[in-house]
C-alpha cells in the first residue's frame, strides 16, 4: 500500500461497500451459490457459515496478494487451492473445537468452502492484480455481501418454515390455535432456490441497471 493513501480512503471504502449491493457476489456476480443455499434452513448455521467464508476469503486474498509476483502463472490454480484448503482446515478445526453442534449441521459444506466460487473468483479477479490491503478489504466486502444474502434467506426460511428466529419461537401460541401452520415446504431445498430467485427479482426491480438483456 502506498504511504500517501489513507487506510480507509474513499476507494478502499468502496471495496467494502460495493459487494453489499451493486456488486453482490450472489445476486450479481453469480458466485458461491453452491454452499449458500444448503446452509440456510436455520439462521445459526447460516451466520457461522457467513463468518467462516468471510475469514477465508479475506485471508486467502491477503496471502495470494502478498505472493502474487512469485507464483508462476501456469500452476497458479493449484497454489491457490492449496492455500485456500489450508485456511479451510484451520476454520474447520476451530469450528469443531468451539461450536461442535453447528459444525455437525454444516457437515460437508465447511469443506466445500474450498471450492466456493467466491473465493476462487475474487482471487483470480482481484487479488492477483492488487496490493495486499485493498485485496484484504475486497475479501471482507465480498464475504459480507455473501453473508447478507445468507442471513436474509435463512431468516425467511426459519421464520416461515419453523416459526422461529435463531432457535426461539416468535410466532405466538395463539396463532397456532387459530389454525396457523408452519410452511413445511420452506424447510425443503427447492424453496431456497425460489427464495433467492425472488430476492434477485426484488433487487433488480430496485436497481434497474442490473437487468439482463435477453
Amino acid at each position: 500500500m502506498s504511504e500517501k493513501e489513507a487506510l480507509f480512503s474513499k476507494k478502499n471504502l468502496q471495496l467494502l461497500t460495493d459487494p453489499l449491493s451493486s456488486q453482490n457476489p450472489i445476486t450479481v456476480q453469480v458466485l458461491g451459490i453452491c454452499s449458500a443455499l444448503a446452509v440456510t434452513v436455520q439462521m445459526k448455521p447460516a451466520i457461522v457459515m457467513a463468518i467462516s467464508v468471510t475469514v477465508v476469503t479475506a485471508f486467502s486474498n491477503l496471502i495470494i496478494s502478498l505472493i502474487r509476483n512469485t507464483i508462476p502463472n501456469r500452476i497458479r490454480i493449484i497454489v491457490q487451492l492449496v492455500i485456500v484448503a489450508a485456511l479451510v482446515i484451520v476454520v474447520d478445526q476451530v469450528l469443531k473445537a468451539f461450536v461442535y453442534d453447528v459444525s455437525k449441521q454444516l457437515s460437508v459444506f465447511v469443506g466445500l468452502i474450498i471450492t466456493n466460487c467466491i473465493i476462487m473468483g475474487r482471487l483470480e479477479a482481484f487479488a492477483l492484480g492488487n496490493k495486499p490491503w485493498p485485496s484484504f478489504l475486497d475479501g471482507i466486502g465480498n464475504g459480507a455481501g455473501y453473508g447478507v444474502i445468507l442471513i436474509v434467506v435463512s431468516f425467511l426460511r426459519e421464520l416461515l418454515g419453523s416459526g422461529s428466529v435463531l432457535g426461539f419461537s416468535v410466532i405466538p401460541e395463539g396463532f397456532y390455535n387459530f389454525g396457523y401452520a408452519n410452511n413445511g415446504l420452506m424447510v425443503l431445498s427447492p424453496m431456497a432456490l425460489i427464495t433467492v430467485g425472488i430476492i434477485i427479482w426484488l433487487h433488480r426491480t430496485r436497481k434497474r441497471d442490473l437487468i439482463e438483456n435477453k
Partner: peptide, 20 residues
C-alpha cells in the same frame, strides 16, 4: 418474463420447480 426476473432470477425459480 418481467424484465427484472430475466436470466438469473428465472433460472433460480426454474431450478426450484425442477427440484420439487
Amino acid at each position: 418474463i418481467p424484465p427484472p426476473l430475466r436470466g438469473l432470477g428465472m433460472a433460480f425459480i426454474i431450478t426450484g420447480l425442477m427440484g420439487m
